[in-house]
């Protein structure tokens, strides 16, 4: 049983060696002639302004949090998926009901975060502006191209 995993450990060792050789190789093979200009952060040839340790949108944190919830949910479902076919027929419906309730609770949570706007990535003001109206635009943004002149 555990011996099944032994080749994986062997593979891990080999893969780590390959990865470290790839990372360390240029230290041995390549030339090293550093200059301050070379070592500065790349900003399209312009002198870098400030540091990159800046604030960034909260959305990324939120996405990571939501991911953990749903990934754990899917991981919880896997054992049910594996066992479902082996269950006797009279227990199957019951098992389905239990897992159904579990999934339903998570779906309610999913709908809540959806309605709360946790999945919105657009700027809310921009979103209202882009919201399509019932009547066509009174003034087209593009002027029609006048014909052959």
């Amino acid at each position: 049983m555990v011996a099944d995993y032994a080749p994986l450990l062997l593979l891990f060792a080999i893969a780590i060696v390959i990865a470290l050789v790839m990372v360390g190789g240029s230290w041995l093979l390549g030339p090293r002639r550093p200059t301050p200009a070379k070592q500065s952060s790349y900003e399209c040839g312009i002198t870098p302004v400030g540091s990159a340790r800046e604030r960034f949108p909260i959305h990324f944190y939120l996405t990571a949090m939501l991911f953990i919830i749903f990934d754990v949910e899917v991981a919880f479902l896997y054992p049910f998926f594996v066992i479902l076919r082996e269950l006797p027929a009279e227990v199957r419906t019951f098992a389905m009901g239990i897992v159904g309730v579990f999934t339903l609770l998570l779906i309610v949570g999913f709908l809540y975060e959806w309605k709360k706007g946790a999945l919105d990535w657009e700027d809310p003001i921009e979103r209202r502006r882009l919201q399509p109206t019932a009547e066509p635009n009174p003034q087209p943004a593009l002027q029609p191209v006048s014909g052959e002149q």
Binding site: A19, V23, L29, Q39
Partner: peptide, 28 residues
């Protein structure tokens, strides 16, 4: 393989050097 490696002066050296390995290892 024979190109010069440019290490950014402001980088977090250790993590910067290990990140490519961390992305190659899972693929392998």
């Amino acid at each position: 393989f024979f190109k010069e490696e440019i290490v950014p002066a402001n980088a977090d050296r250790l993590i910067w050097a290990l990140a490519p390995a961390l992305s190659l290892f899972p693929a392998l």
